[in-house]
Design a protein around this nucleic acid. Structure first.
Lengths: 133, 133
DNA sequence: CGGGATCCGGCTTGATACTG
DNA sequence: CAGTATCAAGCCGGATCCCG
């Protein structure tokens, strides 16, 4: 009575990320993926244009940012607003659902950032004990 | 006054995931990675043996689970307890820090699971409007 | 049972170049 | 500015064999 399958059954959840075929796993990966998480985090503060976003998410390539944004837009988490001006201007912003996802994501991100010293210390200990071999 | 860099400076945070070189980004990826997130989620309910974990995280290979667990152990999120019995028995459980991470992660996971119908509907709309091309 | 070591195919990723 | 197209490299993940 502790399996994740049973958890889902008990609560009658139709979706369970722990199951290989569940579509929720794909969405979770879009959200928590390397660039997805950072894009959502950056957009939580407000709408951004493509290259603004690109500068904020340090290290992302044009291709991956574009790809990431498409996936998030398709999942209904990001809204894309293109203005047919010249030069073109495209703003990206979170949908209400995207904001809720981003809040939970940022809670995790801030926690990790705030405890990095503990993590770094743990790594040091791990490497000291096992690295000597 | 909206950049993520400034956010970090204002609050005097030493670690900022949005910066390419920050080690917190690596840890975030261990935590939110495809298998890391599921391993942490499964272990939040209690300690598990290697193959129990493998069965719960549907689809993970031995290699990737092993690799994932090592990374999480090194980051101080997972505790590995090997008993020198025969046959060998190895239990994995979360550290206090790991539990706090898992709580925030599960909040995100459950939210995604609980809103998959909206996501699926959004995908349908997206594919209908753009798929016709 | 709980892994480590190795090999290898394929998908993902990252430069680069090009377009509207 | 806001992307798409293309191509090479590399990492992911599976399969296999091995050990304690």
């Amino acid at each position: 009575m502790n399996s994740t399958q049973e958890r889902a059954e008990e609560q009658d959840l139709p979706f369970n990320v722990f199951a290989k075929a569940c579509p929720s796993r794909g969405t979770l990966e879009h959200v928590t993926g390397r660039w997805g998480a950072l894009a959502l985090g950056a957009l939580h503060e407000g709408s951004l244009r493509f290259n603004e976003l690109r500068r904020r998410v340090d290290g992302v390539s044009e291709k991956m940012l574009s790809q990431t944004l498409h996936a998030l837009e398709r999942d209904g988490l990001v809204l894309r607003e293109a203005q047919p001006t010249n030069p073109p201007r495209v703003d990206y912003e979170l949908t209400p659902l995207g904001h809720e996802v981003a809040e939970r994501l940022l809670s995790l991100i801030h926690f990790v950032e705030g405890n990095m010293e503990d993590v770094l210390a743990a790594r040091q200990r791990y490497d000291d004990t096992r690295g000597g071999r």
